[in-house]
Design a protein around this nucleic acid. Structure first.
Length: 597
RNA sequence: GGCCCUGUAGUUAAAUGGAUAUAACCAGCGUUUCCUAAACGCUAAUUCCAAGUUCGAUUCUUGGCAGGGCUACCA
């Protein structure tokens, strides 16, 4: 067996071997993926375990007998297996240490370990997608980190990735900020006030809602029903008028709209940069909101859509268990769904991607389901590639965040808060020596962001999460800084040993050393799984377990004072490999790995 | 009403249908002469309820219960 030629992962190799042997013994074809290979539980002897219960029907033998025969044949046939034992229907296999030794030698200096070859597939990931009437808040961060991380993971596993941001820059919401600014802004600008552009615009959005509520109260006082008053409040009518002017291309309105949007973009830029995320392609809804109409009309001609008496255009999805959905109003204008249809087609025409991932909250599950179905019915080529990466909302302990009420945890504040906790912790631990002022600032930022990103990415995306600002963020345990710390410790050791030549050595490895290598060997596979499942939390869990295992190893093994020179070299090699994998895992999550902390 | 998602130690999270359900935080007790105690070790504690399928169910099916979301000619 030559590691250089090795394409298969160890688990895959076990499966292939097992299938082959089963075929030889029983003359039964078992599909490779039907063979279950698990990690052997620590209380048993062995590295990997084949579950033999599923074979009993076709082999007409007891699980123990199948396991026994399979184990004997595997050990006799392939030198990667050194021994086996059978407990009930579980066949525990021990893997030859030589295998891991060769693996170590082949990869400990390989910076691209974990990376897969290009697979020719193109994926677009749309994420972030903010409205321009308010700053980015904590809930958006989950979206942004998920999208960015997923893009990294897909690139690493061989996809060509386009990161897209669809900016929702038009509509009644931005008009609300505009009208409040016109009324009470007195010409305030980010420069004149010193307020970050997106926050400034967001403040007027909140102000709009305050004014609206006041007007509402007055109307209700006058004896008007609340629901009626909500539609009659003068400021709302003004905002709607502003939207009409915008649509009519009114010069002053457009100018103000552009100005305020520019403020917001400048603010967003700062935030995105601070968060360490970027995009390849921006789409603006003001450019795309009229599209989709032609497609709808074409669908009408082909009788996929139908028209009601008031000329509104609909699609009937009841046969698919959904509702009827409006696509064009009676006056011929588009709705949200129509725009999304248009944008989906536009994106596809731009890139012809195989997959289009939308990172959007789970409250839009229905919308996305309908969007995909309509595109399929319209026989648009982009339809089948659409995937909704649906994630649960981030809630505060006292309920949902509402930017209308200013009841949000702001993203910029959050980053600043985390950075200052990092600073406080570092200072308390007295670990500031040997750093320049500049390096310290960078370190605090690395640690604060690391904690924040890891915290939001470690949970399965589809689960909603509750964020408790006081209690939830920690620097111990299942956190970013824990892994960063492990990385920094390894770096320290390697710095001390940097004049030692890491030549190939053959040693008897301990169980824990073997365990580390076994874990690392699974890394490429794990990345593939994270990519197929669109789930960065798998990477979080993996690198956390690896860091934990390494820390435990470190407590039990001497490295620089190992018994023999060979042992030291071997452990330095293992450490190098662990460091590389931790750094790569963190990088895929968008987190930096400090050399010292 | 209909549809979708989620219920696992005190808390936050794991577990392609597999062995005695796994970690972290919190609590209690310990550990610093290779690297950095942001670490390591030990102790205690968990599958919402009821049926079903299975050799085997946290996982699949059905029915409850609880929480959230969607069900706009807003975006």
């Amino acid at each position: 067996m030559r590691l250089k030629d090795k394409i298969m992962s160890l688990i895959q190799e076990i499966k292939v071997n097992a299938a082959q042997v089963l075929n030889e013994i029983y003359e039964v074809e078992f599909p490779i993926d039907s063979i279950q290979v698990n990690d052997t539980k620590p209380e048993f002897v062995g590295d990997y375990t084949i579950v033999t219960f599923p074979f009993t029907k076709q082999t007409k033998q007891k699980p123990e007998e199948v396991a026994e025969q399979l184990g004997a044949a595997l050990v006799a046939q392939n030198t990667i297996f050194t021994s086996y034992n059978v407990i009930k229907g579980f066949l525990n296999l021990e893997i030859n240490a030589t295998y891991f030794n060769e693996f170590l030698v082949a990869h400990f200096t390989n910076p691209s370990f974990g990376q897969s070859a290009q697979n020719g597939q193109k994926v677009m990931i749309e994420y972030s997608s903010p409205n321009t009437n308010k700053p980015i808040h904590f809930g958006h961060l989950r979206n942004i980190f998920l999208g960015f991380s997923l893009a990294n993971i897909l690139k690493e596993t061989g996809y060509e990735v386009i990161k897209a941001n669809l900016i929702n820059d038009r509509g009644i919401h931005i008009c609300k900020s505009m009208i409040a600014w016109m009324k009470e802004g007195n010409g305030a600008t980010p420069t004149s006030t010193g307020i970050k552009g997106d926050h400034l615009v967001g403040d007027y959005y909140v102000l709009y809602n305050d004014l609206f509520k006041k007007e509402l109260a007055v109307l209700v006082e006058q004896g008007i029903e609340k629901e009626v008053a909500e539609k009659q409040a003068p400021i709302l009518l003004e905002a709607q008028e502003l939207l009409r002017k915008w649509e009519a291309n009114d010069e002053d309105t457009i100018r103000l709209w552009k100005t305020m949007n520019t403020w917001v973009y400048e603010g967003f830029d700062v935030t995105f940069k601070k968060l360490g995320v970027d995009f390849d392609q921006f789409y603006y809804e003001s450019n795309t909101y009229l599209s989709g109409k032609e497609v709808a009309l074409k669908g009408l001609q082909n009788n996929i859509l139908y028209q009601k008496e008031d000329h509104s255009v609909w699609i009937d999805l009841e046969a698919d268990g959904l509702d009827q959905k409006l696509l064009l109003r009676g006056d011929g204008t588009s709705v949200y769904m129509t725009q999304d249809i248009g944008t989906a087609i536009l994106k596809y025409n731009d890139y012809k991607m195989d997959k289009s991932v939308y990172v959007i909250g789970d409250e839009q599950n229905y919308h996305m389901q309908v969007l995909k179905l309509i595109l399929q019915k319209l026989q648009e080529p982009c339809a089948d590639g659409i995937y909704h990466l649906s994630y649960g909302m981030v809630e505060l302990p006292n309920g949902k965040m509402k930017s209308r009420e200013g009841n949000v945890v702001d993203a910029d504040d959050m980053v600043a808060e985390m950075t200052s906790i990092a600073q406080k912790n570092t200072e308390e631990l007295g670990k500031v020596e040997g750093f320049t002022e500049e390096e310290l600032l960078e370190l605090y930022n690395t640690l604060g962001l690391g904690a924040l990103k890891f915290y939001l990415l470690r949970v399965d995306p589809k689960k909603k999460m509750i964020f408790n600002p006081e209690e939830s963020i920690d620097f111990h345990g299942f956190t970013g800084p824990f892994i960063q710390y492990t990385h920094a410790r390894i770096s320290s050791i390697l710095r001390k040993a940097n004049d030692i030549e890491l030549k190939s050595v053959a040693i008897e490895m301990t169980a824990q050393e073997k365990g580390l290598l076994k874990q690392i060997e699974q890394f490429p596979n794990l990345l593939m799984q994270a990519a197929t499942e669109y789930n960065p939390s798998l990477v979080c869990i993996y690198i956390f377990n690896l860091a934990k295992e390494y820390n435990s190893f470190l407590a039990n093994h001497s490295i620089l004072k190992a018994d023999t020179n060979e042992q030291m070299i071997f452990r330095l090699q293992v450490s190098t490999l662990v460091k590389n994998v931790l750094a790569k895992g963190l990088k895929l999550l968008g987190i930096n790995s400090p050399e010292r902390m």
